[in-house]
Design a protein around this nucleic acid. Structure first.
Length: 1016
RNA sequence: GGGAGAUUAGCUCAGUGGUAGAGCGCAUCGUUCACAUCGAUGAUGUCAGGGGUUCAAAUCCCUUAUCUCCCACCA
């Protein structure tokens, strides 16, 4: 059945994907030669509820190119596939789905049921991303698909695996080594998801903000002289004041102020340091203290200190021993819990006066006056500003107001509000303003494990490309902060920590913080007797208990297993028969804690599996530069901490894929390109080729559909060259040959050499991760050499004495095109492979060629260059002289050197056909002819009476002018003694040769001009 | 505030010391039996500006401008 005119991507891709999956072509070790070197790649696990966006398509294309290339070379390849449970994102997606489906919300259904519900979501979504990878042509090992929460409690059938065990083991081990600790710290709190998040999950965005100025009056009606000086020390303001002015962008936090701080060198306030000021609206006095933090040149130089709601203030408060009063609840609403304000403020005054207290008591104290309790923080802000203004304590300005009714003017005092750009922290998922919050969290003491990760890159054990990535990596790691790893979510690896025993608490117990952590109370005797069943049976209904009542720090049990926790807790009691209550930490681990273990976790660790031995450390990680901190650096730290080895030898970082104009793709801009749309329109191969072509190191990735269309056309071009071969019987009896055929015809010898050059270029490019160079080399070869020239040469050759070898050569060359293009364009090449010749294997498992430069024949190269140049020159001259394309012309050779004569003789049929020349005779130059000059030969095409001599004259003159310029340049260099003395010899020789050639050309052109003049 | 990168043809981008490149777009021509998702031909650049190093600079150095990204607690 003859080939269709075009490749039907939609039909063929589905069929070929299915074939690859069915044959398990991507299975670990598939097509590996005996004792082959290993090549392993870990897929950056996409979010299980996500879908493939254009960045994934790019990222996975590069991985697949490498993997296919190594697999064809017979290496033992593993491309480990899998997905990430993506805590916040997945919980968010599931809750959204639940809301749409009118399902009960997660609080109503409870933790266990909710987690089961998320698992359903996971199972449902998982297929999406897999299908999309399949459409892209990814040859992962599908049977090894991993999941960062496999094997977790509650995992349904089909989600077995031991990733959870690995995560828990690492947590327990790291805790045992003192690398993980728990502490009350100011953390970034996401009020939407009601969880702590790490620094990295905060996006600082510049927004329009405002700065208000408040007056805090000195206690006891005291006054002082306020003197303001300019930069030269001249007094510009001198007045008596009974207040200190502070500036704030967050007025609502003033309710929790513990002090006002000024810089110790600030002479304006030196006289009032140590005095107390009235905190407006609060009926509290706070001291004026000194600290290095305030900048005397900014604002009034005085800063209100709210230790529980600002990272800087927290540091100041710690240094000064100030209490940090938490003002908001987990949803960032002003607290409504605890004792009435009047009682709370009394206690606060006692504490301020030096009464003994605890961190827990301070945290429990609600210093929000009733009026503001329960308000959203932004509502509270407005109210606080209004109330302070009403008290006359806003720094205000006089504003002229014109009454719109009467037209009369009057002056009014308005709060001074500076409009100001401020950097505001937002949750990267929730997009709500992050609130610094004082809470108990778990941390990895990164400072202790960062060293080996830095050293590994410094020593080259792991190489990051492009190199600029290393700088970013070092900069972050050298300034690393503790990593907050606890999240107040339900979906994730629950932290393997039990608190207790709490034998002294009678009855039931619930440990609840924020969004409803679930406590478990367990009867010790029963548990010992009945093991797991009893543990389940011992769960009882809980009544609310205020957080903080449980003395958690007193007894923390960190083990990997609940029964073990029960035993350990029980063993600490004197009375072994007494009931023991323990409860588990309700928090889960940061997703990145588990994905940080991706390389070893997917290979079966902590079991010493054969895969772990073979494929770890992995070869290459291809990932986005945007997750170098989130993931790459953490994998480095974690793997080095846990198994003392780097997780990968090379890290290839790429940028964000942008639209054709370089804009980020976003739904709101409407410039999102869906890879599936692209695949549907142009085919997966075109998308993949585009991805490869734009993957220059460190370059920006702008995806233009016009370019994708171009590469689709490129596929069609190869298709039709193959079809041409088919129509000429090239494939009849063709069996895959590793070795190139032996050849007589120069064109055949030449194209085989071009193949060898291309193979070398592609190998070099892929070795250096220059996917763009590989794509470029293949494009130029297939289109520019094979299709533009070789196929054309083959036409006359098929009619000549070398027809047989030409068929063999064409078959071999097209085979090489398919093989070399396969890693980048796997579908169309696999299809062509199947449609042509006799094939022992699928193309995906066909041997990558190993031929070398010995196939490049310099003489054939030179001869074909001469031929193609001559054809180009004739075509160009014809076109410029407007000779009709179809017209066959006679040509005269006016001079021919011996090599030129041979080249002509050996390729006469080719030249005549491609340049549309009827005959060639050796004669003196006729008058009225088009001149065509090439190296070693001068030709003339007599067209007296047909051509416009003026036009030919202008053409030749133009060429002469251009040459004259080049000659002048070359002469300039060669006449410069410094050039001849300093430049490398080959450069000088080349320049001389060039000069000679140009002069020769000019001479020929001038001869032609002379002849024109004679008839002109 | 710190750091990284970019600035080359109308557009998107290659090009790390030796006579400026590709694709797309544009113009002219073309229905000869692989391909109009094509072919042939052509036009288009003070390689951001300025200075320096060098026999030689798009390429190395300095500087200015503009842009992008990352990190950062200025109330």
């Amino acid at each position: 059945m003859p080939m269709e005119k075009n490749f039907n991507a939609a039909e063929a891709e589905a069929r070929i994907s299915a074939l690859w999956i069915d044959r398990k072509v991507g299975a670990a070790g598939a097509n590996a030669k005996p004792a082959a070197e290993a090549f392993s790649v870990m897929i950056p696990p996409p979010n299980v509820t996500g879908s493939l966006h254009i960045g994934h398509a790019f990222n996975n294309t590069l991985q697949d190119i490498l993997v296919r290339w190594h697999r064809m070379r017979g290496h033992d390849v593993l491309w480990q596939m899998g997905t990430d449970h993506a805590g916040i994102a997945t919980q968010m997606v599931t809750e959204r789905e639940m809301a749409l489906g009118q399902e009960p919300n997660r609080r109503t259904m409870g933790r266990e049921a909710f987690v089961a519900r998320v698992w359903q979501q996971k199972v449902k979504s998982r297929g999406t991303i897999v299908d999309q990878l399949v459409r892209l042509g990814a040859t992962c090992d599908w049977d090894r698909e991993a999941f960062t929460m496999s094997g977790a409690p509650g995992a349904p059938a089909g989600e077995e695996g031991n990733f959870h065990d690995a995560v828990i083991k690492v947590f327990v081990d790291m805790y045992g080594k003192g690398l993980i600790y728990r502490g009350k710290r100011l953390v970034n709190w996401d009020p939407h998801f009601e969880t702590a998040i790490s620094d990295l999950e905060v996006e600082n965005i510049e927004v329009d903000g405002h700065m208000w100025h408040f007056k805090y009056r000195l206690a006891g009606g005291e006054t002082y002289e306020y003197i303001e000086k300019d930069a030269n020390g001249a007094v510009i303001l001198r007045e008596m004041r009974d207040y200190i002015a502070i500036a704030t962008t967050r007025p609502e936090t003033m309710l929790g102020d513990g002090a006002v701080a000024v810089h110790p060198s600030d002479t304006r306030y030196a006289g009032i340091v140590g005095k107390m000021v009235h905190l407006p609206l609060c009926d509290r006095l706070i001291p004026i203290i000194t600290d290095e933090y305030p900048d005397p040149l900014f604002g009034s130089g005085a800063v209100k200190i709210t230790g529980a709601h600002d990272f800087n203030d927290y540091q100041v408060a710690k240094r000064a021993g100030l209490p940090c009063y938490r003002l908001m609840d987990t949803r960032a609403q002003m607290r409504a819990d605890g004792a009435p304000y009047a009682d709370a403020v009394l206690r606060a005054r006692e504490i301020a006066a030096g009464a003994a207290t605890t961190e827990a008591e301070v945290d429990a104290l609600n210093l929000v006056p009733e009026k503001y309790r329960g308000l959203d923080r932004f509502e509270a802000r407005k109210l606080v500003v209004a109330d302070i203004n009403a008290l006359g304590l806003c720094v205000s300005t006089l504003v002229k107001v014109i009454d719109p009714e009467t037209g009369s003017e009057h002056l009014t005092r308005e709060p001074l509000v500076d409009a100001k750009k401020i950097m505001q922290p937002f949750g990267d998922r929730s997009k709500v303003v992050i609130e610094p919050m004082f809470t108990d969290q778990w941390f990895v003491d990164t400072a202790q494990i960062v060293g080996p990760a830095i050293e590994a890159v410094r020593s080259g054990a792991t190489k990051i490309i492009p190199e600029s990535g290393e700088k970013t990596y070092f900069h972050w790691l050298e300034n690393i902060e503790p990593w907050c790893i606890s999240r107040q979510l339900w979906w994730g690896h629950q932290i393997p920590v039990w608190y207790g025993p709490a034998a002294e608490i009678d009855g039931t117990l619930n440990y609840e913080i924020g969004n409803g952590g679930q406590g478990v109370s367990i009867h010790w005797e029963k548990c010992v007797a009945l093991e797991d069943e009893a543990v389940e049976a011992a769960k009882i209904a809980f009544s609310p208990l205020v957080a903080g009542q449980i003395p958690v720090e007193r007894a923390v049990v960190v083990v990997s297993d609940r029964n073990e926790a029960i035993k350990r807790a029980g063993s600490t009691l004197d009375d072994a028969t007494a009931p023991v209550f323990i409860w588990r930490d309700p928090d889960v681990l940061d997703t990145w804690f588990s994905s940080g273990l991706w390389p070893i976790g997917t290979l079966g660790w902590p079991e010493q599996t054969p895969e772990l031995a073979k494929y770890f450390p992995t070869s290459t990680l291809i990932t986005g530069a945007d997750i170098i901190f989130f993931w790459v650096a953490r994998m480095m730290m974690m793997q080095l901490a846990v198994v003392k080895e780097v997780p990968f030898k090379t890290v290839y970082l790429h940028g964000l894929v942008r639209d054709a104009k370089g804009k980020k793709m976003s739904k709101s801009l409407g410039n999102v390109i869906d890879p599936l749309d692209v695949i549907n329109e142009f085919g997966a191969d075109a998308l993949r080729f585009s991805n490869a072509a734009m993957a220059s190191l460190g370059g920006t990735l702008k995806l233009d559909t016009a370019r994708i269309a171009g590469y689709r056309n490129f596929g069609t071009k190869l298709w039709n060259a193959t079809r041409f071969a088919e129509m000429n019987g090239v494939w009849e009896g063709h069996v895959t040959q590793a070795a190139a055929p032996s050849t007589q015809a120069t064109a055949n010898t030449w194209i085989i050499g071009e193949c060898a050059k291309t193979l070398a270029e592609v190998n070099a490019a892929l070795t250096d991760y220059r996917f763009d160079n590989a794509a470029d080399a293949l494009y130029k070869f297939v289109w520019g050499k094979v299709c533009d020239w070789y196929v054309e040469f083959a036409k006359p050759l098929f009619d000549g004495e070398h027809a047989g070898e030409t068929r063999q050569t064409m078959a071999w060359v097209l085979d090489q095109c398919m093989i070399l293009l396969h890693p980048i364009m796997p579908f169309i090449t696999e299809e062509l492979w199947a449609l042509t010749g006799t094939r022992a294997k699928l193309l995906v498992h066909t041997d990558w060629p190993t031929y070398g430069a010995d196939l490049i024949d310099a003489a054939a190269d030179a001869e074909m260059t001469w031929v193609t140049t001559l054809i180009d020159e004739i075509r160009s001259a014809r076109a410029e002289m407007r000779v009709p394309v179809g017209l066959k012309l006679d040509m005269v050779a006016t001079s021919l050197t011996a090599p030129a004569r041979t080249a002509w003789a050996r390729n006469e049929a080719l030249i005549k056909r491609l340049a549309r020349i009827e005959t060639l005779t050796e004669d003196p130059a006729p008058k009225g002819a088009i001149a065509v000059n090439v190296d070693g030969a001068a030709f003339a095409i007599p067209l007296a009476g047909i051509i416009d001599t003026a036009e030919e004259k202008s053409r030749l003159t133009k060429a002469c002018d251009k040459l004259a310029k080049e000659i002048a340049g070359l002469n300039g260099r060669l006449n410069n003694p410094n050039f001849v003395a300093s430049a490398p010899e080959d450069v000088v020789i080349e320049a001389r040769a060039n000069l000679e050639a140009r002069q020769d050309e000019v001479a020929k052109l001038q001869a032609a001009l002379t002849r024109l003049a004679e008839i002109g």
